[in-house]
Write a protein that binds this DNA or RNA. Sequence first.
DNA 1: TCACTATTTCGAAGTCTGTCTAAGTAGGTC
DNA 2: GACCTACTTAGACAGACTTCGAAATAGTGA
Lengths: 121, 121
Amino acid sequence: MSKLLDVEDVTARECCAPLNGPAIGEGEAAELAQVFKALADPVRLRLLNLIAASESGEACVCDLTGPFELSGPTISHHLKVLRQAGLITGERRGTWVYYRVMPDAITRLSTFFTLPMAAPA
Amino acid sequence: MSKLLDVEDVTARECCAPLNGPAIGEGEAAELAQVFKALADPVRLRLLNLIAASESGEACVCDLTGPFELSGPTISHHLKVLRQAGLITGERRGTWVYYRVMPDAITRLSTFFTLPMAAPA
DNA sequence: TCACTATTTCGAAGTCTGTCTAAGTAGGTC
DNA sequence: GACCTACTTAGACAGACTTCGAAATAGTGA
């Protein structure tokens, strides 16, 4: 069960609406905006980068607290935001909690920004 | 000449640091976060979509005000945020101001989210 | 069970954002 | 020039976000 993982997984509902696509609906825009809001913070961006770039593909909170001059609760808060956006997932193993990125969510964003033909005029 | 275009073009400074990459610096993270902050609003997301999806590749403000139940100044504010993030560019032609997306900025974002090998262990 | 560590949740203070109305600027028409 | 439309800027206000310290929860080991 997911006591830790209060993931809304916002990205999963609507799949791959491209930026170029017909017309993003109000709801879809709100969900997508939520994901970007999660990314719209330097700390969260670096956290995501640290997790994504870690050799084993995952990082524990103790590894993520060091690089920042921020309190533990603050890091935890940012991780929660990333989690709720469906960008990362956390798993407790013994004393520590390990986070890893959700590749599908990242790939989906890449797809969103892929312009089939940049402004064909 | 840019009387209208107070574009900071945040995305141009650092090129294509991938999410998987070595380690995003503090400055780079701040700049990137600025771009995502611009995208972190449903209205701006839909504005960008409307501009990107328009047949001619550009849209005038008058076309962009209709779909929203928001005042003109509010739409103008959101367009300014997108402009300052380097995501769109505006040009006045006669009475109307036309906006178009900056393909390079969009492509750069796509690159950022492209995971060469999702978690190469 | 008790103490200790790791992490999250809670509540509060300060700051930023989205929205509005009112006013200003640019361009076109009479 | 006077007036109209299109758009932006300025100022104000409510609500959301970031951050913190303190307290709560989860797990380990004596």
